[in-house]
Design a protein around this nucleic acid. Structure first.
Lengths: 343, 343
DNA sequence: GTTTTTTCTTTACGCGCGTAAAAAATTAAT
DNA sequence: ATTAATTTTTTACGCGCGTAAAGAAAAAAC
């Protein structure tokens, strides 16, 4: 690591005493060269500080070891967390993760895919923006690059989908809430930015219907990704107007619930399931912060680990087999009820 | 956008009726070609879907329009938020942000810098891991690429530093807490992963000393980046052991405070400044979630916007002038006291 | 020791683009 | 219309690497 700087593979090949094509082969797969030459190359690697230029590699390889990950909004800890899980799996499998956030913007989402196309990824794991996504152009991308969707499903896009079974998970918490108190009203954004929101609403309506209760939708004004702010502001509004149809509120996601909970606290409303509590609040997702709210948030957990593993595996198997699956599989994981203090 | 797909600049030049070098010049700077040829190129851009391959551009340009952003841990909403601010400024200035997270790992931090070097960035904005960083190799990077540090300062690295004045900010909140109740104890991690932690501790000790109070350090076990968990677990431990030297706790950062607050709530300790409250808790950073805790968290805000703007501007001016500044400037912004419910 | 197999070297071209230099074409100035 | 200045085209090479093909060298098999 002290000798003069090596500028490219040519120079490195020279100092290692091996021809460049062989060195190139080595970097592609160290096992593919004879033991003795491998040792000579690795000896040179010890002495000289050289690593091949990945971008130049990408340019020429038909297929690289890159795997793109695109999430709708990385500043949301939920996506940050699941992305981190997936990244680790990709690294463990010997691939190279490239994580991109769409920042809630469909144009950025397309940009991200175009940008990924340039580095010729072996595959892409895409959590789309959902309704906002330009599905036509995403479809064109999926034709060129093996793509597995996760978190949010878009009709028939990609080779597979891995996510949560919203019907099951919402049913679960609705059941729980009905069993232990008043049937819940459903708190959501009127025009939701969250990809799964529509499915959750439908699941809520169906669940209430199936159990013979009349559903109540509480729809918050506002848009964008600042869900806590919306949950807080609109939650306070509904509470102050005494506009809540029941004493039990199921929020479309935990971030809304976090905002709602803080509004309830500020207004002196005791939240929880014990006697002496004015209302119950439940969320959905088991957001990283949901265990630190006051009271702690009762919610349905998405199995981050399984979703990450399954979607990564689905992509790996497509990459390794080299052929697209004939039928598009949807792997839907069940949510788990996380009983905490708020409901 | 419907004609046959264009594969490279050669083909695009052909269909636009302009030679490739001129087209290349156009993409570098649209103003640099004659008005009439510019129109012809842009007419072709309307009809054909073509964008130059940035990676191939990077490979050949001496200097690109890329600006790297490296943060220690992107899953932390604090860094996600400031990174988002910086990204927008960079885009607005006509550059191309490349955001990378070190995932709390010094090796990854170096990896990120090496990876950035390959795309020949015009400059880099680096929020280092701090004590964990391998400053020697970062220094070597800074010699090659104009780098501005933010959030966390490392001795004399980079062309400039932009961050928070921890002495001022901690002094501010210590003052406030002393003025309104018992002098605070300081809650932190025994071996902190957070880059600013040591400065905060020193600032606390100095502030207490200057005001004639004896400082108390409450040091939590644990490491890693799951600060809320640590704040919760260790906060609960100290509360249960009745090991708190005062009724006022100043946390080294908001995430610890969020955990501490939830522990206090669970143990039935009423937190706040009114009568009937058992203790006061304050944080530091004005974390995005600190306004949704119960009670809302009194803290010191870092001016995200100003820090983002100043560090971006510092880098832009270096890039545009083409020369490194003769003296390394440190821009330290004052924190603002954010009085909320918890103290 | 000879033959076969495996691995390596040499040579050469390609990826998509930047960029330099000289020649040609266009525009502006006189 | 001539000349001068500007812009574009042509030609050619380079970036750092992948990769294919043919021949040379080394290792393995007999």
């Amino acid at each position: 690591m002290n000798e003069p700087k090596i500028r490219n593979m040519e120079e490195f090949a020279a100092v290692s005493g091996i021809s460049r094509p062989t060195v190139s082969k080595y970097f592609h797969d160290p096992q593919s060269v004879r033991q003795s030459t491998r040792q000579r190359i690795e000896a040179a690697l010890e002495r000289y500080d050289y690593r091949p230029n990945v971008y130049a590699m990408n340019q020429n390889r038909r297929l690289t070891k890159n795997i793109g990950i695109v999430v709708p909004y990385l500043a949301d800890p939920f996506f940050a967390e699941i992305a981190r899980n997936i990244e680790n799996l990709i690294i463990a499998a010997g691939f190279r993760p490239i994580l991109l956030s769409s920042h809630g913007d469909p144009a950025q989402e397309l940009d991200n895919l175009e940008s990924l196309r340039l580095i010729k990824p072996a595959g892409v794991l895409l959590a789309p923006l959902g309704r906002a996504s330009e599905s036509g152009r995403i479809e064109a991308f999926c034709e060129d690059v093996p793509t597995v969707l996760f978190d949010s499903n878009i009709s028939e896009l990609g080779e597979a989908f891995v996510g949560l079974d919203n019907r099951q998970s919402v049913g679960l918490i609705v059941d729980y809430l009905c069993r232990t108190g008043e049937p819940p009203a459903f708190f959501e954004m009127k025009s939701p930015t969250n990809p799964n929101a529509n499915k959750r609403r439908a699941a809520y309506l169906a669940a209430m219907d199936a159990r013979g209760h009349t559903p109540h939708l509480i729809q918050a004004e506002g848009d964008g990704w600042d869900f806590e702010e919306i949950g807080h502001r609109e939650g306070a509004r509904f509470i102050e107007q005494r506009n809540l149809p029941t004493d039990t509120v199921l929020c479309s996601n935990d971030r809304l619930a976090i905002g709602f909970l803080s509004a309830a606290y500020e207004l002196g409303l005791r939240v929880g399931l014990g006697s002496g509590c004015a209302m119950r609040v439940a969320g959905h997702d088991d957001h990283p912060f949901s265990r630190y709210t006051c009271p702690t948030l009762t919610t349905v957990s998405q199995d981050y680990t399984s979703i990450a593993e399954k979607s990564a595996e689905a992509l790996f198997s497509i990459i390794e087999s080299g052929q697209r699956p004939s039928v598009r599989e949807s792997a839907l994981f069940d949510g788990k009820l996380i009983m905490r203090g708020s409901a």
